[in-house]
Nucleic acid binder design. Structure first.
Lengths: 127, 127
DNA sequence: GATTTATAACGAAACTTTTCGTACTCTAAA
DNA sequence: TTTAGAGTACGAAAAGTTTCGTTATAAATC
């Protein structure tokens, strides 16, 4: 498996999201899922899964006639990398500014806000 | 000025960051700044500023022989759009998850953390 | 006025990402 | 054994992004 510092492209990320949500899936399953939202062709999905296999974003496993694809690494790891990337590209590394924008961009529920408080407590406790 | 729903590309974002930091600048000024960090050619920067003018990401103004370029919209607006974009592309719209990743990705200082608490207070107060 | 210098304009090459058509393979049904 | 169906493999076109060389222009200097 290759080093996985690669940032997935938009199309790749769409596919990864399906794999995270559904778990290991065949091309057809990923295709069906994506097809709900946008007009996309079976072989396009297949092609991407092949590319992503080369890049080490997914692995595959034989299952009878078809292949079953697994996302490499967890959703959280990938999200982490994307956040770090955005942090560097657009926020000069300031997590605070990013958090501010995230919280004002989307209304979070009361529960979510208190979850975030808990995280803050833990971070302050640890430091 | 065009509608500004365009997501800037990586190279465009690098240039916008210079304009946000320095304020309105000539091509040469942007070039000098970028040139510190990476090998880049004057005409490449010029080309991008021309493209970005067409896209409505920047405006320009004549100042004698040269042009002075202004970023369209504030840094915060652009950052907001980028966060919303990431939220949709990778976090299923959950600001909470993004905040969690941001806070664990980068150690925030104690002051920053308490700034974030203030924001939380305001959000809960308003709701 | 001619030459140098700093700039803008433009086009195209190089590269990346995305999309899709076509060919090939295997299996199972007719 | 042939045919139909579901799958993979592959190549190349289409679209988008990035880079840079060349040319044109106008001002400053000689």
């Amino acid at each position: 498996m290759k080093e996985q510092t690669n940032k997935p492209t938009d199309a790749e990320l769409r596919i990864l999201r399906v794999l995270w949500q559904r778990g290991p899936s065949t091309v057809r399953e990923v295709y069906e899922e994506l097809h709900r939202d946008r007009p996309v062709v079976y072989t396009t999905v297949l092609k991407f899964l092949q590319i992503m296999t080369e890049k080490g974003l997914v692995t595959r496993e034989d299952a009878g006639r078809a292949h079953v694809y697994h996302a490499c690494g967890s959703e959280e790891q990938a999200q982490r990398r994307l956040v770090e990337n955005l942090l560097d590209r657009a926020f000069g590394g300031s997590a605070q500014k990013l958090v501010l924008q995230a919280l004002t961009a989307r209304k979070a529920s009361a529960e979510e806000l208190s979850e975030i408080r808990k995280i803050l407590d833990e971070l302050e406790g640890g430091a």
